[in-house]
């Protein structure tokens, strides 16, 4: 409870700020309407009208919450209007991109640590790759994969997600695989360990804390990548498509509900990764 108190205070502060901003932003429309009707309402009359508009500039928290609830629990989860359905589509894409990113990141890190030439050639490109905005690359990946005859969006979405998620894994794993000090390497040498044994018995287990730390970043990056992959026109499924739909049809509530749904999804994913990390730590004897 003592740990929750500061968090709650900050949360309440944010909500208060949000309400104030909603009043301020949505009031413009109320005043416009009133001016057209030749009225001049007081502030006390305006405030209630900023709280329940059809298409508010900035929907207040309770409107977003009720829309979110409706999207999550208000319909069959197979419905095209259900956020559970769209969330699951995004979740599937995220997992595929996350897995691909891990494979790519770990594989490249292994090659970089093993071969000096890889270190010199691949690493700079990996860094440059992250300076290119993903929103610029995403449509190209979609077009190319379409051209190659790949049906649907699953594969290109996974590629876009892995484009973001492989990088933290790569950087951490390079550091982790190089974590063992000279003494530990010397020790293995005196036992005549092969390179494969050095990798399996020392480098790989030594890199695990780095690996799990990077997973939390990577899973969030994969989610962002997936949502970006759902944005380009033509997507009909996924939280990204919902967000775009909301903004295209001037329905900010749809966008905001999808936004919060993706935040909830991100929270769940990070909690899940943290749980896996805790289990692995226990198995590896980390002090509780």
């Amino acid at each position: 409870m003592r740990r929750a108190a500061p968090v709650l205070v900050v949360l309440l502060g944010l909500i208060a700020l949000w309400y104030a901003a909603s009043v301020w932003m949505n009031a413009t429309w109320v005043y416009d309407q009133a001016a057209r009707a030749g009225e001049s309402p007081t502030l006390m009359e305006v405030i209630p009208q900023t709280m329940a508009q059809e298409r508010p500039l900035l929907p207040p928290p309770h409107q977003v919450a009720s829309r979110l609830w409706e999207g999550l629990a208000g319909q069959a989860i197979t419905s095209k209007r259900s956020l559970v359905y769209h969330g699951f589509v995004t979740f599937r894409g995220t997992m595929a991109g996350f897995a691909l990113g891990i494979v790519l990141g770990v594989g490249l890190a292994m090659a970089i640590v093993r071969f000096r030439v890889m270190d010199m050639s691949v690493m700079p490109w990996a860094i440059i790759s992250q300076t290119v905005p993903i929103v610029a690359i995403a449509p190209m990946i979609l077009v190319v994969s379409n051209q190659l005859g790949i049906q649907g969006r699953e594969v290109p979405k996974a590629i876009i997600a892995s484009y973001l998620s492989f990088f933290p894994v790569l950087v951490s794993m390079v550091k982790g695989l190089r974590a063992p000090d000279q003494m530990q390497l010397d020790l293995l040498k005196t036992w005549g360990a092969s390179e494969g044994q050095t990798f399996r018995k020392l480098r790989l287990p030594a890199s695990m804390p780095y690996f799990f730390a990077s997973l939390k970043v990577a899973v969030a990056a994969a989610l962002v990548g997936t949502i970006v992959g759902e944005l380009p026109t033509g997507a009909v499924e996924g939280l990204g498509a919902r967000m775009l739909l909301g903004s295209q049809y001037g329905e900010p509530l749809i966008t905001w509900a999808a936004l919060f749904a993706s935040a909830i999804l991100a929270g769940i994913l990070i909690l899940a990764v943290g749980l896996v990390e805790r289990l692995a730590n226990r198995r590896m004897g980390v002090r509780a």
Binding site: M183, A206, V286
Partner: peptide, 24 residues
Amino acid sequence: YVFQAAGLYPWRTIAGNIRLPLEI
């Protein structure tokens, strides 16, 4: 070979550490 630091692997038990050269 015994170094100044014990250099035990923190992720292995004591028995696991002693077993390491034997596994190799």
